[in-house]
Computed example of a mutant assay.
Amino acid sequence: MALAMASLSLGLHMNSIPIFSSFFVPLSNGVLVKNSFGLGTKRFYVIPKERLLSSVTTFIPRALSSTALEDGSNSDTEIIPTPKVIIDQDSDPDATVVEITFGDRLGALLDTMNALKNLGLNVVKANVYLDSSGKHNKFAITKSDTGRKVEDPELLEAIRLTIINNLIQYHPESSSQLAMGTAFGALPPKQEIDVDIATHISIRDDGPNRSLLYVETADHPGLLVDLVKTITDINVAVESGEFDTEGLLAKAKFHVSYRGKALIKPLQQVLANSLRYYLRRPTTEEASF
């Protein structure tokens, strides 16, 4: 079921998506790159950070007090749950599955689904379930022009940042829990993640024709796109995967291959070294915001 409402907009320059002016997705340098994620190979344009800096200042989050009233709590000492956003490319062959968890605070998520529709997407709310970690909201996303799952790394990152931006707008208390609170929110995180300590990379065979790459690192805007670009720059194909945002950390699992085969040990080492260099180099933070 598609919901036809409208509100939030993103300043992306893509073939099938119009350009908006109120909120720019901060990815990396303004260059054309060629990447593969999902089923095909796409060319996409990444917005330079100068355009981001001129527009982020217009973001005004909803007042914290109103959110506290909506949630039925105004305690300054209550424990704020860790926000989680999972983008899953593996579990459904026909759709991109998104799962959002933030304790029991998220409500119906109608505004978030509206914002995703403005990206040219069909959004169907699948289910809501509750466990010890909170209320899990899962829904399926397809491209409205093709009816197929999202494959473009830039559009996947736009989905992630749209959700996080809406989360911060309607739940300002989440800003201090998310790395993106520095860029979009009124309350930046109280702690900073040491990238050298937080970064973990592992690669193992996942059958004869592909390998499984796992990356855990400090989150920042544009991370998903830059990870895929770093991988494909050494001619390793990204077939599918899952990208999780958990508070200040990002955790990515990619199925990768080289010429239709699993990565041999020397290439695994090259890939791991390339990712570590990208994630730990001093210019990473500056280029991402």
Rank of each mutant, 00 (worst) to 15 (best):
S73M: 00
S73R: 00
P83G: 01
P83D: 05
K84V: 11
K84H: 03
I86L: 14
I86T: 14
I87F: 05
D88M: 11
D88Y: 08
D88G: 15
S91A: 10
D92R: 14
A95T: 07
A95W: 05
T96R: 02
V98M: 15
E99I: 04
T101W: 00
F102K: 03
G103K: 09
G103L: 04
G103Q: 10
G107Q: 05
A108T: 09
A108W: 13
L109A: 13
L109Q: 10
D111P: 08
T112P: 06
N114H: 11
N118P: 01
L121M: 03
N122H: 10
V123H: 04
N127S: 11
L130T: 15
G134D: 06
H136P: 08
H136S: 13
N137Y: 15
K138Q: 15
T142S: 11
S144L: 15
S144M: 08
D145N: 13
T146D: 04
V150D: 06
D152Y: 05
D152K: 05
E154F: 03
L155K: 09
L156S: 05
L156I: 12
L156R: 15
A158K: 07
I159M: 11
I159H: 12
T162Y: 12
N166P: 06
Y170K: 04
H171Y: 14
S174C: 00
S174P: 07
S175R: 00
Q177S: 14
M180R: 08
T182F: 07
A186K: 09
L187T: 09
L187D: 08
P188M: 02
P189S: 05
P189I: 07
E192P: 00
E192Y: 01
V195Q: 10
V195S: 13
I197N: 03
I197V: 15
S202V: 06
D206W: 02
D206S: 05
D206T: 01
D206G: 00
G207Q: 09
G207A: 05
N209L: 06
R210E: 06
R210M: 13
R210W: 04
S211W: 06
S211I: 03
L212C: 02
V215W: 14
E216S: 10
T217H: 02
